[in-house]
């Protein structure tokens, strides 16, 4: 009990003594772990480099301002490519994630082994960043838009699949029971009782992922998978920081635009 009798007066404590001690122990362990991590990082850092970090930062920013606007025209086509990578990638990913989510959701999965398979695909896809998929795909299908699109799609499968199967598991079960009791077939039950319930979530998740994918696809060019990242990479390699700044401004504008679109669409479907 949090209230103890000490010297005949009740003493109130927020937690039981043992629980309190365990919590302090937890904090202590976390602190120790943090210090250990910091030591490892510190050992691998050449601290002498940091003495002039502020000068480096100042000169970097100095060279970025003003941005080199003269290359804006040549960046528009790569920007369009970036948009296409994100859009096509999202579409492909969603196309695969949709059936996968039904296999993965406890209440719609036809068989436990299929469910395990779907969950494995989802977690694998979620664990690996689009950029890593892109590096791999560039070595397989060659540099260009296709590698970027597939990379985005592969990463989106897990994200959309996970959120969607959680949405499916959260639907109201009674309408499903009601439609089943009319004698409807399996697919009809899905179409008439499950789908209407998850459609708003599905649309929201898709647009949300598209928004994230716009951001992700801006950097895929760093590893050769197409889009504006290619120009950014070239500018960085040439140490042309003014051009890099221009790319940043364009990326910033695109991301704001995609966030605006995504907010509009989500507002409309909910």
């Amino acid at each position: 009990m949090p209230v103890e009798i000490v010297n005949k007066t009740p003493v109130w404590q927020r937690r039981e003594p043992l629980q309190q001690r365990l919590i302090w122990c937890g904090y202590f362990l976390a602190l120790m772990l943090f210090l250990l991590c910091w030591k490892i990082i510190s050992d691998n850092t050449i601290w002498e480099f940091l003495t002039d970090a502020h000068l480096q930062a100042a000169s970097l920013i100095g060279r970025m301002i003003p941005p080199d606007w003269s290359i804006t025209g040549s960046l528009l086509l790569p920007l369009w490519d970036t948009l296409n990578i994100a859009t096509v990638g999202t579409a492909l990913g969603v196309l695969i994630a949709f059936p996968l989510a039904f296999l993965a959701a406890r209440n719609t999965s036809p068989h436990p082994s299929l469910r395990a398979f779907a969950l494995a695909v989802i977690v694998s896809s979620r664990s690996i960043n689009a950029l890593i998929w892109a590096i791999l795909l560039v070595t397989i299908v060659g540099p260009g838009l296709l590698a970027g699109m597939i990379a985005i799609a592969l990463r989106s499968i897990g994200f959309v699949g996970k959120l969607l199967y959680e949405a499916i598991e959260e639907i109201h079960p009674t309408p499903v029971e009601a439609v089943t009791s009319t004698g409807a077939g399996r697919m009809q039950v899905l179409a008439y009782s499950v789908m209407p319930q998850i459609m708003p979530a599905f649309a929201g998740i898709t647009v949300y992922r598209w928004d994230i994918n716009i951001r992700e696809s801006t950097v895929l060019g760093l590893v050769g998978a197409g889009g504006i990242g290619l120009q950014m990479n070239a500018a960085i390699n040439n140490l042309a920081w003014g051009q890099v700044a221009t790319v940043f401004v364009l990326i910033f504008a695109t991301v704001i635009f995609s966030e605006w679109v995504s907010a509009k669409v989500r507002h409309a479907v909910i």
Binding site: T174, P175, V179, T180, S181, G183, A184, G185, P196, Q197
Partner: peptide, 29 residues
């Protein structure tokens, strides 16, 4: 099942479908 109609405590309508669609879902079988 098609020969057995069922009415539920919490109505069990599919709330995002229209009234007509809900009624027609009785013909699914």
């Amino acid at each position: 099942r098609r020969q057995i109609g069922m009415i539920f405590q919490n109505y069990a309508l599919v709330e995002r479908l229209s009234v007509m669609e809900n009624v027609l879902s009785g013909r699914l079988a």
